[in-house]
Design a protein around this nucleic acid. Structure first.
Length: 890
RNA sequence: GGGCGAAUAGCUCAGUUGGUUCAGAGCGCCUGCCUUACAAGCAGGAAGUCGGGGGUUCGAAUCCCUCUUCGCCCACCA
C-alpha cells in the first residue's frame, strides 16, 4: 500500500472509504471465544429522539480513544453500541410533530401513535449510527441493540418479575411528581429542581368557634381547596391550646381540625401549616398520621377537579391560585404577601412545573438495592473520575428514595402486570414474564396494565441485557462485567448509579469499575449547548468541514478530567483550529517522510547483517530516538490514567516540535541525493514516525491509518488499528543525547534570535563565534550552520567588533558580528536587562544557600541542584559581563 | 438550607505527590519570511505580582484559614 498521497489534506476523501475498509476487516467485532483478556465499554445509548449533537461527539470520541488504545494493547475489545427508546422524550418529540398537523396522540389512538413513533425512531436511529461511524467510532456493530428490542424487553420483564417476587416492587398510592403536560408520573430525578422567584401568601384561617384565626403561609394557595387540616408542632407554645379545635376553611364550607405533628418546622412561616395530603409529600404523611382523607383538587391537567367547590372547577392551577388569593383578599383574610425564592420541580423533558399529586403508581424499593452499591464504592471497587463525583454518588445512594417506575405513556415497555376483571377474584393482580390471557386463579378475563415503564428501567440493565441476559450466553460470560463507563455527569443518578445497583442485584457484580464522568460542551458564554438556544454544534458539519480527526483531536486535547469543553458555535473554524491545523501538519509530515523513504529501510536494531550499528547514529538520531521513548512512556501512562488531553498534547509536541521542527530539518541534507547517512536517517525517521502514528491512532484514527499503511514494506492487509502498541522502555532513553542536542537547539535558537532582533534577512549568512567548543557543536556543526544560516562557526575568543551576544544556560557565550548593523544602545540594553535578571536570581539563590535551615532540612539532592543552578547563573553572568565590557556598555 | 468545585497570559485551559527542565500550551496579537512537506506553514517576540488577605514551611500556583466572584450537586421549610 504505497500509492502516492494527494498533496492536499482532504479528510472527506479518506475517511469514508477507510471506515468501510475497517468494517470489512471486522476488527471492531469482539470474539466471545477468544483467549485475550476482555476490555468492555458500554456506549451510553443515545436517545432516538434526534440526531447526535456535540456532546455525543465528545462522549463517543473519549470512548473510542480508550477502546482503540486497548485494542492495540491486545485486549479483546468490545465497545457495544446501542440506542435508547427514551420513552417520555421520544413521545414528546412525536407529539410535537403531530401538533404541527393539529393532532394529538389521542386522535390517533395508542396503536397508531406507537406506530408513528416507530417510524420516527427508525429514521433517527439509523442517522445516529451513521453519525457514529462518521466520527470513527470503532464499535462492534454486530451487537448493536435498541432498548425496545425483544431481547432487552425480555430482560425488562424478567427483572420486573424478580423484583416483584422479592417484594422490591410494589404498587401504591403516594404523592408523585406529575407532569400536567406530559400527563404522566415522573421519578424524583425527573423533576428538576429550579430556583424560582415566587411568593409566599399568608392566609388567615378563621377558628370555627369565632375566637380568632390561625395564619398559615403557603406558596401554592390553590391547594387550600384540598386542605384537610392545619398542623402545628406539638411543642409550639403559640398554638398548644388550639390543637383539637376546628377551622372554618374559607371558600369550601368545610371544617378542618388543627392537629399537632412533629413534622412541622415551628421556625418556618407562622409555624402553622395548611395540610393538603393529596398534593404535598409532607402533608400526605401528616394526613396519614392523623387519619385525614386526602382530597384531590387538581386533575391530571393541573386543572381544579370536581372535588373542589364549584366555582373553581376546571380552572387552571394558576388561575385558581389568583382566584383563591382574590377571595381571601375580599374576605379580609389575606394577611400579607412576601416574595419568596424557592426550588420548584420542573419536568426534565418539557420544562412544565410538576404538580405533586396523589396517584397510584408502581415503585421499586431502593434501599435494599442501594446498600450493596454504596458498599462497592466505599470499599474501593468503584473508581470515579473525577473523584469528587463519587461523593455525589455516595450522598445520593445514602438518601435514596423509592423509584416511581410507572409512566402514563404509550411509548415504552408495557408493565408486565395483568389485572383480573372479575371483582370477586381473590387474586386479581398477576405479574408475568409472558403475556397472560386468563386469570390463573378464577379464569376470568385479564387486562394488562395500561402504563409503561420508566425508560431508565430498561437502561439500567444494559450492561448485561445487551449481552443476552437472562440467558447464559457466551457473550455474557466473556464480557460481563465490563471495565469503563464514560458519560456525562447529568445521568449519574438516572443511569450510572442504577446500573451499578442492577448489576449487583441481578449479576452479583458491579458492571464496570471505572466511571469517567466527563464535562459538558458549552458555548463561549459557558451555556450548555441546546436546541432551544440555537447554540448547538452539529458534529457532522465539523466532520464535513475539518474531518473527524480534527474534531477528535480538538475535543480530546481540549478537555482535562473534570472540566468542560468550550466551543464557539459561531466560529467553528477557530474552535477546531487546533485539530485542523494538526491534522494538516500530520498530513504534510507524512507526505515528506513517505516521499523520502520510498523503499524498505534498514533495521534499527538486531543482529542482521544490514542492521544499523549504534555508532552509525548521529547525535540527532540518538536524540530523536530518546525523545520518542520518552513520549511513549509519558503518553502510555497518560492514556492508562485517563489523562487523554495529556496523552494527546504530549504526542502533538513530539511530532510537531521535536520531529518536524528539528529532526526533519536536521536530516534533510542526508535525505537529499545520495548523501551519506541517508539510510540511517530514513531508518530513524521511519521508526519514530511509525511509533508516533501508533501513539496517536486512538485520537486521530483516520489520518494515522492512512499514513501508516503507506509505509514501505507494509503488507496490504496491515492496519494500525490492530498494530501492537509501542513498547515502553525507559532504559532506551538516552539522557546524554537529550542534553547534548538540547545545547545544539539552544545555540541555534540564540543565533536565530539575534538575527531576528537585528533584522538580518533570512538569505544572508553570518559567521558566529562560540566561546568554547563542545562535542555536540562539533558533531552537529553542519546542522547549526544550516538551521541558523551560519557561514562559519568559530570557537574561542571573538573579534572585538560590534555584534549580537547571547549566553547559553551552561555559560557558553555566543557572538554574531553585525558590522554597522548593530545598534549599540539597543544591544547594551538587551544585555543589561538580561544581566539584571541574572543578578536577581543569583542574589536570591545565594540567600537560599546561605540559609542554615535550608541546608539542613532540604534533601541533599535539592541542595545540590540549587548549588549547580547558582554556578550556572554565575557563569552566565560572568560571560555577559565580559560581553558588555567589550561592547563598551559599562 | 446542606455538600462540593473553580479562579493561572486578551481567549480556552494544562500544571500528577510542595523543590530540577515551573510559571507553560493552543488560539489571538506584533515583527520578518511563499527557506523545493506544510502560509492550516516557518522563525522570532510581547504579554501573567498564578482572584484578594493571612498562615504553615528552609521553600507555596501547589498545603491550611479567610474574603470576593463564578459554577455544580443535593434538599418534603409549607
Amino acid at each position: 500500500m504505497t500509492q502516492e498521497l494527494p498533496s492536499r489534506y482532504q479528510p472527506a476523501d479518506i475517511e469514508r472509504d477507510l471506515y468501510q475498509w475497517w468494517m470489512d476487516r471486522g476488527d471492531f467485532g469482539a470474539r466471545a471465544d477468544g483467549t485475550r483478556a476482555p476490555y468492555v465499554i458500554m456506549m451510553p445509548p443515545p436517545n432516538v429522539t434526534d440526531r447526535l449533537h456535540m456532546g455525543h461527539g465528545l462522549n463517543n470520541t473519549i470512548q473510542d480513544v480508550l477502546i482503540r488504545f486497548e485494542r492495540m494493547r491486545g485486549r479483546e475489545v468490545l465497545w457495544l453500541p446501542g440506542t435508547d427508546h427514551a420513552g417520555i422524550a421520544t413521545q414528546n418529540v412525536v407529539e410535537r410533530l403531530l401538533a404541527k398537523e393539529g393532532l394529538t396522540r389521542f386522535d390517533l389512538g395508542r396503536e397508531a401513535f406507537v406506530e408513528r413513533v416507530w417510524q420516527h425512531v427508525h429514521d433517527t436511529g439509523a442517522t445516529i449510527l451513521e453519525q457514529l461511524k462518521a466520527l470513527g467510532a470503532s464499535c462492534d456493530w454486530s451487537r448493536t441493540y435498541f432498548t425496545l428490542d425483544e431481547g432487552l424487553s425480555r430482560a425488562v420483564r424478567e427483572t420486573f418479575v424478580r423484583l416483584y417476587e422479592k417484594d422490591l416492587i410494589y404498587r401504591g398510592n403516594y404523592i408523585i411528581n406529575w407532569c400536567p403536560r406530559c400527563l404522566t408520573a415522573l421519578s424524583n430525578e425527573e423533576a428538576e429542581k429550579k430556583d424560582v422567584a415566587g411568593k409566599i401568601w399568608y392566609l388567615q384561617y378563621p377558628l370555627a368557634d369565632g375566637s380568632g384565626h390561625v395564619t398559615v403561609a403557603t406558596t401554592r394557595p390553590e391547594t387550600m381547596l384540598g386542605d384537610t387540616s392545619v398542623a402545628v408542632h406539638p411543642e409550639d407554645e403559640r398554638y398548644g391550646s388550639l390543637v383539637g379545635q376546628l377551622i372554618d376553611l374559607p371558600l369550601t364550607g368545610r371544617q378542618i381540625p388543627i392537629v399537632a405533628d412533629s413534622g412541622v418546622d415551628p421556625e418556618f412561616g407562622t409555624g402553622a401549616v395548611k395540610v393538603t395530603p393529596a398534593h404535598d409529600p409532607l402533608d400526605f404523611e401528616i394526613g396519614q398520621r392523623h387519619g385525614l382523607e386526602p382530597i384531590v383538587v387538581l386533575d391530571v391537567h393541573g386543572h381544579v377537579s370536581d372535588d373542589a367547590p364549584e366555582e373553581f372547577r376546571g380552572l387552571d392551577r394558576y388561575e385558581a391560585r389568583q382566584r383563591v388569593v382574590d377571595h381571601f383578599g375580599e374576605l379580609g383574610l389575606l394577611e400579607k404577601i412576601e416574595p419568596h425564592q424557592h426550588a420548584v420541580g420542573h419536568c426534565y423533558r418539557c420544562g412544565t412545573v410538576v404538580e405533586p399529586r396523589l396517584s397510584e403508581q408502581w415503585f421499586v424499593k431502593m434501599e435494599p438495592l442501594a446498600a450493596p452499591a454504596l458498599e462497592a464504592h466505599r470499599d474501593g471497587r468503584l473508581t470515579f473520575l473525577p473523584k469528587r463525583r463519587g461523593d455525589d454518588f455516595d450522598q445520593w445512594l445514602g438518601g435514596i428514595r423509592d423509584w416511581c417506575i410507572s409512566r402514563q405513556l404509550w411509548w415504552g415497555h408495557r408493565i408486565p402486570v395483568w389485572y383480573c376483571d372479575d371483582e370477586a377474584c381473590d387474586s386479581p393482580i398477576h405479574v408475568s414474564r409472558t403475556a397472560m390471557e386468563r386469570c390463573p386463579s378464577c379464569g376470568g378475563s385479564l387486562r394488562q396494565d395500561e402504563d409503561v415503564l420508566d425508560t431508565w428501567f430498561s437502561s439500567w440493565l444494559v450492561p448485561f441485557s445487551s449481552l443476552g441476559w437472562p440467558d447464559k450466553t457466551p457473550d455474557l460470560a466473556k464480557f460481563y462485567p465490563g471495565n469503563v463507563l464514560a458519560t456525562a455527569p447529568e445521568i449519574l443518578f438516572f443511569w450510572v448509579a442504577r446500573m451499578i445497583m442492577a448489576g449487583l442485584e441481578f449479576k452479583g457484580e458491579i458492571p464496570f469499575t471505572t466511571i469517567y464522568l466527563h464535562g459538558t460542551v458549552r458555548d463561549t458564554q459557558h451555556r450548555k449547548m441546546s436546541k432551544s438556544l440555537g447554540n448547538g454544534i452539529d458534529p457532522l458539519e465539523v466532520v464535513d468541514r475539518f474531518g473527524a480527526d480534527a474534531l477528535r483531536y480538538t475535543v480530546v486535547s481540549g478537555m482535562a478530567v473534570g472540566t468542560d469543553l468550550i466551543l464557539d458555535p459561531d466560529d467553528l473554524e477557530n474552535s477546531f483550529a487546533v485539530g485542523r491545523n494538526f491534522a494538516n501538519k500530520l498530513w504534510n509530515i507524512g507526505r515528506f517522510v513517505l516521499g523520502n523513504i520510498p523503499e524498505a529501510v534498514r533495521p534499527l536494531t538486531g543482529p542482521g547483517p544490514n542492521a544499523i550499528a549504534p555508532e552509525e547514529l548521529t547525535l540527532a538520531d540518538r536524540w530523536i530516538l530518546a525523545r520518542c521513548e520518552e513520549t511513549v512512556v509519558t503518553a502510555t501512562r497518560a492514556y492508562e490514567q485517563f489523562r487523554l488531553n495529556e496523552a494527546a498534547t504530549t504526542i502533538y509536541h513530539f511530532i510537531w516540535s521535536d520531529l518536524a521542527d528539528w529532526y526533519l530539518e536536521q536530516i534533510k541534507p542526508r535525505l537529499f541525493g545520495d548523501a551519506p547517512g541517508g539510510d540511517v536517517a530514513r531508518a530513524v525517521v521511519a521508526q519514530t514516525f511509525d511509533v508516533a502514528l501508533r501513539l496517536l491512532h486512538p485520537v486521530t484514527p483516520f489520518i494515522s491509518e492512512t499514513l501508516w499503511r503507506r509505509f514501505p514494506g507494509r503488507p496490504d492487509d496491515a492496519s494500525i488499528g490492530v498494530a501492537p502498541w509501542p513498547q515502553t522502555d525507559r532504559r532506551a532513553i538516552d539522557a546524554e543525547a537529550t542534553t547534548a542536542f538540547g545545547m545544539v537547539q539552544e545555540l541555534v535558537s540564540a543565533v536565530r534570535a539575534i538575527r531576528a532582533e537585528y533584522n538580518i534577512t533570512p538569505g544572508r549568512a553570518v559567521s558566529i563565534w562560540v566561546s568554547r567548543s563542545h562535542p555536540a557543536f562539533e558533531e552537529e556543526a553542519a546542522t547549526i550552520q544550516r538551521l541558523a544560516k551560519v557561514e562559519t562557526l568559530h570557537f574561542g575568543e571573538h573579534p572585538k567588533e560590534p555584534g549580537g551576544h547571547a549566553v547559553l544556560t551552561d555559560g557558553t557565550g555566543v557572538f554574531v558580528p553585525l558590522g554597522n548593523a548593530v545598534d549599540l544602545e539597543r544591544e547594551c540594553g538587551r544585555l543589561g536587562s538580561e544581566h539584571e535578571r541574572l543578578e536577581k536570581l543569583i542574589a536570591g539563590q545565594k540567600q537560599k544557600l546561605a540559609n542554615e535551615k535550608f541546608l539542613t532540612r532540604a534533601p541533599a539532592e535539592v541542595v545540590d541542584t540549587e548549588r549547580r543552578k547558582l554556578a550556572s547563573w554565575q557563569d552566565q553572568a560572568t560571560v555577559l559581563g565580559q560581553k558588555r565590557q567589550l561592547l563598551g556598555c559599562l
